[in-house]
């Protein structure tokens, strides 16, 4: 029993953090939102070099094997930095394609060359994705976008409706749980960053002659955010460890509920603590605040997962 990340896992997280700190993700996000995917694609290549997209690809296809713990650690960092693109979808697609025997895409996914969208029901970034997938009645299909962009509250999430074009094989049911778990980890990272920037802001923003972080009303909001985030993390880690066991769907549902509610509540706290500036499009934290709302219902809302959880119990 050692229920904390290993030294290697901690180093993996901090190397991603460093890489992303230097990447100026807010400007990458804004380009992505406007339809210019070039800076985002370059960032994907760097992330692939750091090993991110190999985490759900088998070793015989140039991957690292399926490493759920490393996956949630990586997704948490990608969420903290609000990296745009079909991150959860590409990671999940690798598992689905492996199970369906469609292996030719796998080395390209691991290398960060193939962005894969997976409809749920809207396909994220289907306009730039190299492959679009959808699961219908338990069968994995290749698909193509139909119609116009459906704008999301998160400008970095470019959603499209899709129609299936070609059957690929049976869809691995646990792969969709993997998507919910990866999304939970990403969401938790979004919440963590929003707490960090809110604490920084509360330390420096003065009103009535004092930093607003001196006032107990503000302190208590931020303390509650930390409690929520801190008690959601172990559920996410435990669900990753349950991958491959019968408890995986149950534990994933628990992780998604806790992470979504913690991150979303933290986003509302962040907005309140920042005041009017937080409510502006121009100010970078708004990119995280909007993502926190979008991820709340992506890959199953807390209500959906609560129903699943109680069914499992």
């Amino acid at each position: 029993m050692r229920f904390v990340p290993s030294e290697e896992q901690r180093l993996f997280a901090s190397s991603l953090d460093k890489l992303l700190d230097q990447a100026d993700t807010p400007s990458v996000i804004r380009s992505w939102a406007s339809g210019d995917h070039a800076p985002g694609r370059r960032l994907w290549t760097s992330l692939a070099e750091a090993g991110v997209f190999a985490l759900t690809v088998p070793e015989e296809h140039d991957g690292a094997g399926l490493l759920p713990v490393e996956l949630v650690i990586a997704m948490h960092e990608l969420g903290r930095h609000a990296v745009p693109g079909p991150l959860v979808e590409t990671a999940t697609a690798a598992a689905l394609l492996t199970a369906a025997g469609e292996t030719r895409w796998l080395p390209r996914i691991a290398a960060g060359e193939a962005l894969v969208s997976l409809a749920a029901p809207y396909a994220l970034d289907a306009d730039t994705a190299d492959l679009v997938l959808t699961v219908q009645d338990g069968v994995l299909h290749e698909a193509e976008p139909t119609g116009m962009l459906r704008p999301s509250i998160d400008p970095a999430r470019r959603l499209f409706e899709v129609t299936p074009t070609r059957e690929l094989g049976d869809a691995d049911g646990t792969a969709l749980d993997l998507a919910a778990l990866a999304c939970a980890a990403q969401h938790l990272g979004v919440g963590r960053r929003l707490l960090e920037v809110s604490v920084d802001y509360a330390r420096t923003r003065h009103q009535y002659g004092h930093p607003i972080g001196e006032y107990q009303a503000v302190k208590h909001h931020l303390a509650d955010a930390l409690i929520d985030l801190e008690f959601a993390r172990p559920l996410v880690h435990a669900a990753a460890l349950a991958h491959g066991t019968a408890d995986f769907p149950r534990d994933t549902a628990a992780a998604k509920i806790a992470a979504a509610e913690a991150a979303y509540r933290t986003a509302k706290t962040a907005l309140q603590v920042h005041g009017a500036i937080g409510y502006t499009d121009e100010y970078a934290p708004s990119l995280w605040i909007r993502k926190a709302r979008a991820l709340h219902t992506a890959w199953g809302s807390p209500a959906t997962h609560r129903t699943r959880l109680m069914a499992a119990l």
């Binding site: 930093p211 208590h220 930390l226």
Partner: peptide, 15 residues
Amino acid sequence: QRNVIAERVLGLPRG
């Protein structure tokens, strides 16, 4: 406790 969390864990200023 919430004051303690805010000040000693998050590093907000004492007031």
